[in-house]
Amino acid sequence: MQEHPLFIGTAGWSIASRYAAEFPAQGTHLERYARRLGCVEINTSFYRPHLPETYLRWAESVPDAFRFSVKLPKTITHEAGLVDAEAALDKFLQDIAGLGKKLGVLLAQLPPHLKFEMQTADGFFRLLRGKTASHIALEPRHPSWFGHEAESMMKTHHVARVAADPSRAANGDEPGGWDRLRYFRLHGTPDIYYSDYDAESLLTIGRRVAASAAGGAEVWCIFDNTANGHALGNALSLARSLGKPGKEPQDS
Rank of each mutant, 00 (worst) to 15 (best):
A88G: 03
L93V: 07
T120V: 15
S195T: 12
R180D: 14
L93A: 00
V62S: 00
Q94V: 05
G104K: 00
W178N: 00
G177F: 03
W178V: 06
P24A: 09
T44D: 13
S167W: 05
R35I: 01
I192L: 11
V162C: 01
G233E: 12
E53R: 15
R208M: 09
G147S: 00
P249R: 13
D224A: 10
P111R: 02
T10C: 14
L103E: 07
L37K: 08
M154T: 03
A160M: 04
D122V: 12
G27P: 04
Q250V: 14
D165F: 02
V105L: 06
L93D: 00
A133R: 12
G176D: 09
T44K: 09
A160I: 05
E86H: 11
D95T: 00
A231W: 01
E3F: 07
R126M: 14
V219H: 00
H78Q: 02
A213C: 08
S252Y: 13
S61G: 09
F124R: 00
L236N: 04
G9S: 07
H78D: 00
N228R: 15
E86D: 14
S45E: 01
L181G: 04
P166G: 09
I96M: 07
P73A: 01
L93C: 02
L203A: 14
A65C: 04
H187T: 06
S69P: 04
V83G: 05
A21V: 02
P111F: 05
E151D: 15
S17N: 08
G233W: 06
G176K: 06
H187N: 08
H142I: 09
Y47T: 08
A11T: 10
I42S: 05
C39Y: 00
R35A: 14
S167A: 13
Q26E: 10
D173L: 02
E117W: 11
T44F: 08
W178P: 02
K244I: 03
P5R: 10
A211E: 15
H135N: 11
K102A: 01
M154E: 09
P175V: 04
A20S: 12
Y47H: 11
T156I: 13
G176R: 03
L236A: 08
L202K: 08
L236I: 04
K115Y: 02
G27D: 07
A217Y: 12
M153P: 01
D179S: 15
I136G: 05
L30R: 07
E174P: 07
A87N: 01
H78E: 01
A133T: 09
L106G: 03
L93T: 03
S201Y: 11
G176Q: 11
A133D: 14
E174W: 03
S212G: 07
A231S: 11
P143I: 10
W58D: 01
L103A: 00
L236F: 00
A170W: 12
E53W: 06
Q2I: 08
G246I: 01
R36I: 01
D196M: 13
A80S: 12
V162G: 00
A137W: 03
G177T: 06
A227H: 06
I76F: 08
L51N: 14
Q250D: 10
S144F: 09
R48K: 13
H187F: 02
R207P: 08
P112A: 03
S167L: 05
E200I: 07
G206D: 06
V40T: 15
G215R: 05
A21Q: 12
H142T: 09
G123H: 09
S144A: 12
M118F: 15
L30D: 11
T10E: 06
